[in-house]
Design a binder for these strands. Structure first.
Length: 510
RNA sequence: GGCCCGUUGGUCAAUCGGUUAAGACGCCUCCCUUUCACGGAGGAAUGAGGGGUUCGAUUCCCCUACGGGCUACCA
């Protein structure tokens, strides 16, 4: 039974943007599936109709695709285990819930929300701030345990709204073997009678995961640590439904924490601290509010999955930069950490920088073209192809290419005069005036010629070449950055160079 | 409150009883470069506390402290 083909699933609920932790969960599932030549399934957990958000499902699919970790099966790639949206599997859950009732593992409960509320306030105390529907309270409530068979039948035939709750056994040790954490033991009398089937006929997560993981032949169930407390319910359900022999292996991933303070990382933290939390831009259809994504902030997909993979896992070798193929090869669930990791945006940028540096011009070119054209800069591919390798080590994110590339195509609009003026004088001004004349009569326009001309002339005028190089740079690019000046001069051409010296001269001479 | 999980530098982290406790990010110094980067060489910075077990604990066990998660007809 442990020789079954590996099948794992990522099961988000379509309630909004896809958060770092979600992508990492998807990624670990993906890596595991690929490593074991298994299948990666996307299942949409949309059982809460009140939280359904338009467009969220497509957004999830798009994010995974951008990351390069698209599922093998899912709503958009149907396989033989569909449908992959829980809302479309509604009918199957009731059957199992009823089966649990007839086996004595679950019961009908007719308590209204108001009655539940009343129970919680009535039983609330300092010792017990949040009373549960469990062995201490269940016999005081309105359910098929306290009502006669006739009353229950009548209520059901009268279509009185009701839920089905699991009947937690009294004194039982529920053991869970977690790949990351080892054996975790829960005591059944401390777990409450969770709702399995809601009054609207939809299952809760608890029933749905088990039924679907079974139906979809999931062999390894991976999810975030926040699910650990409800794991005993799931284990029991596998047992009660008679499926113990095919219960998946479990692993609960550590949480990704806020960079400062403590607690789970949330979208708010990103807004507050100025970094993305979602994989891609997300626009809330209700409020219209736009939340920035890693993609749009200029991250490369390979860098993104690399940094995510290493946030909570490493192969022990010290290697930090992994391609997707290497991740698949080296990944192991056993080496995922137990403790949560604080997200560090600086390190994230470092990862991206490493990937930018090692990326080919071909890969960078279309991204850079899009960046520049969306900033109304007209480019030509030939120049871009020569310029990209010259400046990519200066770019942490794709968006940095704008500053580093812009001056190759348009004259700088603002010059960093402060960098020049304190040391600017008549002599230097005169130098550039004669430099312009020399350049005009230059026989051929190449780095060597330009540089020779520049140096010879400055020496001839009693200036150190270095002293006039910075002003020259500022004239050409606008600031103290960029590759070798003479190379820039060559690439932007004679006309632009002369023009920029001219405008530079006038702004320095003010 | 209860239950569960966790705790090595500011951050990510290696170590599977014996190490001068790796490496990376960030920070600082220097070199390269008369720009900015890249690259190179250095530096500061870590085992929460207390008990055990052991010849020997960062490593195994217990307690305490601290942090987190969960405690919905949400996932």
């Amino acid at each position: 039974m442990h020789q079954r083909p590996v099948r794992v699933r990522f099961a988000p609920s379509p309630t909004g943007g896809l958060h770092l932790g979600g992508v990492r969960t998807a990624l670990y599932n993906y890596l595991f599936a690929k490593k074991h030549h298994g299948t990666f399934v996307l299942r949409i957990e949309d059982t809460d109709q009140t939280r359904y958000v338009q467009g969220a499902e497509q957004y999830i699919v798009d994010c995974l695709e951008w990351c390069g970790i698209s599922p093998d099966e899912g709503p958009h790639r149907p396989g033989k285990f569909g449908p992959y949206r829980q809302s479309e599997r509604k009918d199957v859950y009731r059957v199992f819930a009823e089966q649990l009732v007839s086996n004595g593992h679950a019961y009908y409960a007719f308590d209204t929300p108001e009655e539940l509320e009343k129970m919680r306030t009535d039983f609330k105390s300092d010792n017990n701030p949040s009373p549960q529907y469990n062995h201490t309270t269940r016999m005081k409530m309105c359910n098929s345990l306290t009502l006669s068979k006739e009353e229950v039948e009548k209520k059901i035939s009268d279509k009185v709204p009701h839920v089905i709750r699991i009947l937690m056994p009294d004194q039982e040790e529920i053991k869970l073997n977690d790949i990351i954490r080892g054996e975790v033991v829960f005591h059944s009398h401390l777990v409450d009678d969770k709702v399995l089937l809601k009054a609207d006929g939809m299952p809760t997560y608890h029933l749905a995961v088990v039924v679907d993981d079974h139906a979809m032949e999931i062999t390894h169930a991976f999810r975030g640590e926040e699910w650990l407390p409800s794991a005993p319910v799931h284990v029991l359900l596998w047992q009660f439904l008679g499926w113990s022999d095919v219960m998946p292996a479990w692993a609960h991933f550590p949480l990704i924490l806020k960079p400062d303070g403590q607690g789970k990382l949330s979208k708010r933290d990103g807004d507050r601290l100025g970094f993305p939390v979602f994989a891609m831009d997300w626009r809330d259809p209700k409020t219209g509010e736009l939340t920035k994504g890693f993609k749009e902030m200029g991250f490369l997909p390979d860098a993104y999955i690399n940094l995510l993979a290493l946030l909570g896992w490493n192969d022990g070798s010290g290697q930090e930069i992994f391609s997707k193929e290497e991740l698949i090869q080296h990944f192991s669930v056993e080496r995922i950490h137990k403790s949560g990791a604080k997200f560090d945006f600086e390190k994230a940028k470092w990862y991206n920088h490493e990937w930018v540096k090692k990326s080919s011009t071909d890969l960078l070119l279309p991204l850079v073209q899009e960046l520049l054209s969306s900033n109304q800069i007209h480019t030509n591919d030939e120049l871009l192809q020569t310029a990209i390798p010259l400046i990519k080590e200066r770019c942490h994110v794709i968006n940095d290419f704008l500053l580093q590339l812009k001056y190759f195509f348009v004259d700088p609009t603002q010059l960093d005069t402060e960098a020049v003026k304190p040391k600017w004088d008549e002599k230097k001004s005169a130098f550039f005036q004669s430099f312009v004349k020399e350049l005009e009569s230059l026989s051929s326009w190449n780095i060597e010629e330009i540089e020779k001309c520049f140096k010879d002339l400055s020496l001839a005028q009693g200036l150190k070449p270095g002293d006039v190089q910075l002003p020259f740079r500022v004239m050409l690019v606008g600031g103290k950055f960029g590759p070798a000046v003479f190379e820039i001069a060559q690439l932007i051409g004679k006309d632009a160079t002369l023009r920029r010296i001219d405008t530079g001269l006038s702004s320095f001479n003010i």
